[in-house]
């Protein structure tokens, strides 16, 4: 190809990607840069900005609540990501078997994922209400398993556990959906060959299913980490005293008169952490 043609093609290519670059620049790059810029200011409601250098950062890093919320976020991430992936995998394998009403079961399993967060949160709150809820009624009045009524969602000792459980229940269907899609495309002859080689069910799972699913599982885990590190609404609506990072950010920056500079500093750090985590995961764990 002549150099003119190559040049023309390159120019056309640039023109074709220009709208996308423009939109990404406007909606992603610009807000990130502006956010970084804001993090060095004390921003008043009327728009006045006072340069404060690294004050927002040092204030944040000197706050013990911040480290506490990092710890809670780590537990929350570990619990929810492992929980949804394992439960999603189990459900996918089960739903890949032949049985009556399989299609109906496949549909029903997706319900928690489709239900609006706010309505299921209230459902859970009704169930666990300390005075009138069915959970305490059954535990205390019917089964006599306990003498005292517990506020499972409110009590800080159990709240984190309940929030993790809620997230697993609500979000395992998406893991299930992705894994089942891949599972259906695994060739049957691989299993037959493994069976001929003398592998039992466990061996077939370990040597055929898992390697085939590896990349989908990795994708599920990656997506779940990204979503759950930033997850706000489920946690805040259900148990606002579980201070994961987004909840901490909300209390710190958005309760009362908004501290835009402080909020910007938190989100800059959170962005760096997220990027770092993903890089580490993709490069070192997945070796993509």
């Amino acid at each position: 190809m002549s150099s003119v043609l190559i040049k023309n093609e390159a120019r056309l290519g640039l023109k074709l990607v220009a709208p996308a670059v423009g939109i990404i620049g406007l909606l992603v790059i610009y807000p990130i840069l502006f956010n970084v810029y804001l993090s060095f200011f004390d921003v008043q409601l009327n728009g006045t900005k006072i340069f404060v250098g690294f004050d927002n950062y040092s204030e944040l890093l000197g706050n013990p609540r911040y480290y506490n919320s990092i710890g809670i976020s780590v537990v929350y991430l570990l619990g929810t990501v492992t929980g949804t992936t394992v439960l999603g995998l189990a459900a996918a394998i089960l739903m890949n078997q032949e049985f009556h009403f399989r299609n109906l079961a496949r549909g029903l399993i997706l319900l928690p994922y489709f239900a609006p967060v706010i309505s299921v949160v209230f459902g859970w709150q009704f169930i666990f209400d300390p005075v009138n809820g069915i959970y305490n009624h059954v535990m205390v009045d019917v089964l006599h398993l306990s003498d005292t009524r517990e506020n499972m969602i409110g009590d800080p000792d159990s709240a984190l556990f309940v929030v993790i459980l809620f997230d697993i229940w609500k979000h395992f269907p998406i893991a299930y959906l992705l894994l089942l899609a891949k599972l259906q495309s695994v060739p049957k002859d691989l299993y037959e060959a493994a069976a001929i080689d003398g592998q039992n069910a466990w061996g077939r799972f370990w040597h055929v299913t898992l390697p085939e699913l590896k990349f989908v599982i990795a994708t599920v885990v990656l997506l779940r980490i990204i979503w759950n590190l930033n997850r706000f609404e489920d946690v805040f609506l259900l148990a606002p005293n579980v201070e994961t990072l987004p909840i901490f950010t909300y209390y710190q920056a958005f309760s009362g008169v908004v501290d835009q500079g402080g909020a910007a500093a938190i989100s800059v750090i959170q962005l760096l952490v997220l990027v770092g985590l993903i890089w580490l995961y993709v490069r070192k764990v997945l070796k993509w």
């Binding site: 300390p130 005075v131 009138n132 009524r149 506020n151």
Partner: peptide, 15 residues
Amino acid sequence: PPGPQNWRARDYYLQ
């Protein structure tokens, strides 16, 4: 009443 409470728990009085 057990756990963290706010004004909504006034309904326990009405009950």
